[in-house]
Every structure is written in structure tokens, then in C-alpha cells.
């Protein structure tokens, strides 16, 4: 039996549930030289802002046990340059395009969502959870009111489905998820990175120039699975789960916890072919277990 790997998520059809996580896959060009990225479920592009941003000073990366910290700080060419120079080529590849956006104010988020809808991206992902910028970002994402305000404004101006990306750096993620849902979010994605820090004991200096950064990679998988599980139980809205997924087993785990789509980020750095291998592994698992549609895995955990 061959499982149906496609997933319809907030009204958008994905070839399979595996999606490149924002900020780890650029605008698809580079990995597109290594393999045909139309084999992926979708691509979340690098976080966009209203105007171009140079990002933070370096070092912007530090290795950690089974993970890494980053403090890129939303370096990007700005939403207009993305629409003019990157989107057409990405479109041509025939992969679902999700535009990840960050603003300083709710109306800036709304303005970007409007431009991107007109430019016909498939979805917008509202990043209210970037730990590496001073204004905007996580400032909105850590309070239910902040999330609701941004979500409402984006929903008002977006012509495409809106996914809100949640921060794990909160006490009760389910409460934030409900606030986003109540404000009209069509989908939720989680988790963004967990704030962390490393110090070089020889120099007594933080490894990152920004002192702190966002933790990603296998180290955060159990935290992500737990949060996806909590959120999926708290809302009706479909969820894209991510955080530490590097093998097909991790993707299956994320789906069983309640995710309909699975984002893969840091694993691409360790193995540039990680996503295609995860897709193949997941398909084999579904076939062997007699799963007719891969979506049947979603929420399939049998809790105690």
C-alpha cells in the first residue's frame, strides 16, 4: 500500500509534510543547487522585514551539545527586494512558498502581509518570536495581547492564510496559542529558538557577539515535542511543529504529538540532504504501518 503523503493545511496543499524552517534555507537557491527542492513539502523563507537589515555583528553562531546558538538578527534584503528578486525564481520551482515576516509595529506586519499576498506567496508566517532583535519579534510573542494585536492586523490585510510562529520562551505556550487562534490565525507554527548563552572560559567572553542567541537542533527536540503536544490539545487550528527534527523518526514523533506539518532547520547544516531523507523515511514508515494518509499520524499519540 502506498500512503498519500500530501497534506492540506489551512487550505493550502503540501506535497508532503516536510517544510524547510525559516532562516536555515535562505530563499531556496543554495540547497536548490544540491537537489530538486520541489520534492519538499514547502519552504519558509528567511525572515523578512519592511526594509533591508544588515543583522548583528559576528560571531553569530556557537556550537552546543547536540545543538547550536544563532544570533543572526534578521539580516535580509527587505520585503520589496524579496518580491522583486527572489520570489519569481522560487515560484518557478513549484514549491509551496511561505513568507516569514517580522515587524517593529503591528501595522508594519500588516503592510508586509498585504504586499506578499498581492505577490501571491502561498502563506505568511508571522514571526513574533525572534529572540535576536531588540524591537518587535519576541516582544510581541511573549504576551497574549501582543500576539493577538499582531495577528488581528495581519489577518485584516492578508489575502492568504496566516500562520503565527510561537516563541518557546514563555511560561504557558497554550495561552499564547489560544490568543493567536482567537485573533483569527489560520495556523500556528512552533517552536522558534530557545534563548541560550555560551561563554569561552579562556577569554571569559560570550562566544556570541550579542552575548545570547537562539538554541536550535536536536537538543531542543523534546521541548518542541512537548510544546506541540500542549498547543495541539489547546486549539483547533492546525500546527506546524519544528525544533530539533533531524531524522524521520523525529518527524513522525512531531506528527504524533499533534503537528500536521513538520519544519526542519538546523538538520540541513549537518546534512544538506536531511529533508529528502526524512521524507523518504516517513513514507516508508507510513507504508509499512498501513497508514493510508500521512495526516492520520497527526495527534496519534496515545497518552497515559
Amino acid at each position: 500500500m502506498t500512503a498519500d503523503m500530501s497534506v492540506t493545511f489551512a487550505g493550502v496543499r503540501f506535497r508532503n509534510p516536510i517544510v524547510a524552517a525559516s532562516g536555515t534555507f535562505g530563499f531556496g537557491r543554495e540547497y536548490g543547487e544540491l537537489y530538486d527542492i520541489s520534492a519538499l513539502g514547502g519552504v519558509c523563507v528567511k525572515g523578512l522585514t519592511a526594509r533591508a537589515r544588515l543583522g548583528n555583528p559576528t560571531p553569530r553562531i556557537a556550537e552546543t551539545p547536540m545543538g547550536m546558538l544563532n544570533s543572526v538578527g534578521l539580516q535580509n534584503p527587505g520585503v520589496d527586494a524579496f518580491i522583486a528578486n527572489e520570489l519569481p525564481d522560487l515560484r518557478r520551482l513549484g514549491v509551496v512558498v511561505i513568507a516569514n515576516i517580522s515587524g517593529n509595529t503591528a501595522s508594519e506586519y500588516g503592510e508586509m502581509a498585504e504586499k506578499l499576498s498581492v505577490a501571491r506567496v502561498d502563506m505568511v508566517e508571522v514571526n513574533v518570536s525572534c529572540p535576536n532583535v531588540k524591537r518587535g519579534g519576541m516582544m510581541f510573542g511573549t504576551s497574549p495581547d501582543g500576539v493577538a494585536e499582531v495577528t488581528r492586523e495581519v489577518k485584516r490585510r492578508s489575502g492568504v492564510p496566516v500562520m503565527v510562529k510561537l516563541s518557546p520562551n514563555v511560561t504557558d505556550i497554550a495561552e499564547i496559542a489560544r490568543a493567536a487562534e482567537d485573533a483569527g490565525a489560520d495556523a500556528l507554527s512552533l517552536i522558534n529558538t530557545i534563548v541560550g548563552m555560551r561563554i569561552d572560559v579562556n577569554t571569559r567572553r560570550p562566544v556570541l557577539r550579542m552575548n545570547t542567541g537562539g538554541l536550535s537542533g536536536p537538543a531542543i527536540l523534546p521541548v518542541a515535542v512537548r510544546m506541540v503536544w500542549q498547543v495541539a490539545r489547546a486549539v483547533q487550528t492546525p500546527v506546524m511543529g519544528m525544533g530539533g527534527v533531524s531524522r524521520w523518526e523525529d518527524a513522525a514523533e512531531m506528527m504524533l504529538a499533534g503537528a500536521s506539518l513538520v519544519g526542519v532547520g538546523t538538520a540541513n547544516f549537518s546534512d544538506p540532504h536531511a529533508m529528502t531523507e526524512i521524507i523518504a523515511g516517513l513514507e516508508k514508515y507510513a507504508n509499512e504501518r498501513g497508514v493510508g494518509r500521512v495526516g492520520e499520524l497527526t495527534g496519534g499519540v496515545m497518552e497515559y
Partner: peptide, 17 residues
């Protein structure tokens, strides 16, 4: 030299002004 993530140009951690 700069510390690297992806090594292929996708993650922007290896920036240089």
C-alpha cells in the same frame, strides 16, 4: 575566516561587512 553554519550561503551566520 568566519564561524559557519550551513557553509553554502543559506543561513547568514558567516557575515562579513
Amino acid at each position: 575566516e568566519e564561524r559557519m553554519g550551513c557553509g553554502v550561503g543559506a543561513c547568514l551566520v558567516c557575515a562579513c561587512e
